[in-house]
Design a binder for these strands. Sequence first.
DNA 1: CAAAATTCTTGATTTGAATCAATTTTTTTC
DNA 2: GAAAAAAATTGATTCAAATCAAGAATTTTG
Lengths: 202, 202
Amino acid sequence: MLFLAVMTKDFPAALVQLFQQIGQLTPPETNQVLNLWQYEFMLRRNEYLSTPDQRDRYIYFVISGTLRIYCVDQQGVEVCLGFSYINSFAGSYPSLITGKPSELYVQALSDCKLLGAVWEDFVELSKEISNIERFRRILAEETLLGRMEREIEMLTLPPAERYERVLKRSPHLFQFVPQKYIASYLGMTPETLSRIRGKKGG
Amino acid sequence: MLFLAVMTKDFPAALVQLFQQIGQLTPPETNQVLNLWQYEFMLRRNEYLSTPDQRDRYIYFVISGTLRIYCVDQQGVEVCLGFSYINSFAGSYPSLITGKPSELYVQALSDCKLLGAVWEDFVELSKEISNIERFRRILAEETLLGRMEREIEMLTLPPAERYERVLKRSPHLFQFVPQKYIASYLGMTPETLSRIRGKKGG
DNA sequence: CAAAATTCTTGATTTGAATCAATTTTTTTC
DNA sequence: GAAAAAAATTGATTCAAATCAAGAATTTTG
């Protein structure tokens, strides 16, 4: 992973918005937070942002590219848990929360450009600025809601409908992500997804 | 559900601890929060605390009894997502976060005694007291961690090992909860769980 | 405490998706 | 842009768990 410590002045509009709109930060507070995002990362396709052998030190924001989050089952099969795309955060959230390594891998599916902030700095700032503490709370809640929504879909919908849902919610996924990873994300083999797509309007 | 508005002075030690230890609340702050927990609820076995037809207005704390959280799949089969027991919070967290009904049912598996606080009051107080905002953040993070841990176990472990894990982590479950609900929670039928238990030291 | 209801167990059978295997298509790389 | 690698498709077969079914055990309820 190529690492560039750059004094960025041009923060992504999407990142600024997140803090201003979701976080309700005042302009000076927004500046303080944005100044943490001083680190730029370049990942080549297939390189790793997080692995289970070390804890995450940065929270990342995706400028360009797509990543997958996965873990490995008992027989060594990779199981995809989600994706990170442009204008979303990336990294192993569990690792950041616990301060320890997690079972999760985060891997670039294409060349990626990321901004990073040292998580500890972010935590420290949230002690000073209550709006940032609140931002962290909202971030955790939103993430939880997303995970539970997926959990419920996995448990209540048959494979074909899980596919339909993702196709409707994230059609762009199929643009950037090999089907085998989407299949894994949907809890099925690539063969099964291929057959499902064959039947309905694929 | 029997509802009793009672001016409680005797708060459960476990609830007090949660706010003091996890929340790091000062004694006066602790008092302010505890004073929200003025509502006592009694549930008879099989009665519902939450259903998808209305949003949750209270956050609950379990004084006694056990509850299950479940949703219903496309064919009407109930799928168990978790349990709430003594000294844990109860209710539909998604419903509280979103302010809307969720797909979740929360049902008493035995007669239950609960304390309740109006969620809106809790939210309001967290605007005044930053330690409570922080408590909410930690609550969300812990809940997220728990859900992700379960998600990973469901995806990476074979049925028999999922059973072993739960047996090790929560042996008391089998004391209070009918096996069919545990089976559902483990992602299998009651028959399958019964057979697994038959093999290994059941 | 006896009857009724529910839950658990055990066996036989079915089934949907996984696996195995071979080919075609697409993407990457030099 | 040709060769190599990776991914997707398609078919045949297998398999683990679900379903179906019946009886035993436990729990609940008047």
